[in-house]
Amino acid sequence: METETCWKFRWFWAWQDDREEEWLGSMSRAGWHLDKFGYPGVYFFRKGEQKNFAYRLDFQTSRMKDRDAYLQLFHDAGWEHLGNMSAWEYFRKEAKPGEEPEIFTDPESKILKYQRVLRFLVIFFPILFILFSTSWRHLPERGPMGSVLLFITMGILLLYAAAILGILLRIGKLKQTIRK
């Protein structure tokens, strides 16, 4: 018998990764378990029995020295690695009632995760900025097409700024939870 599958498109912002985790968890509690993904925002689910899975996301770039050891550590701790969507690594673990398993157990390491996201975003900022300033300078020559291009790059730049701000706020909130 063929199992039921479905797919969903869902975008998430880098500073709202916990909402993504909750959403995936609620899908599993309804019997839809994350199966395949990889393209930005596209998720495939497979129907099964309802399960209380905790989904958790980590952010790791190629700077990470030893991916094998990293994945082994999560595996040993009972976390299933589902794959990655760009630099986001997806893990899940079945949670006992009243239990909320975490991959990051202190605010310090959560802050480090968002700092990795931030570093990643900052690298691309100059490229975006150059794109923006060139489309601005060539505006008169290009006519209506030039304005469209300018608006698009401006939109991307604004989103970018929002993402950086969102993550900075997130880090700020986490820092408040650290009592020294």
Binding site: I103, T105, E108, K113
Partner: peptide, 14 residues
């Protein structure tokens, strides 16, 4: 009283 998640531990090892 203290549990360590794999994400936290990996960062500490590094």
């Amino acid at each position: 009283s203290v549990t360590i998640g794999p994400g936290t531990l990996y960062g500490m090892f590094t």
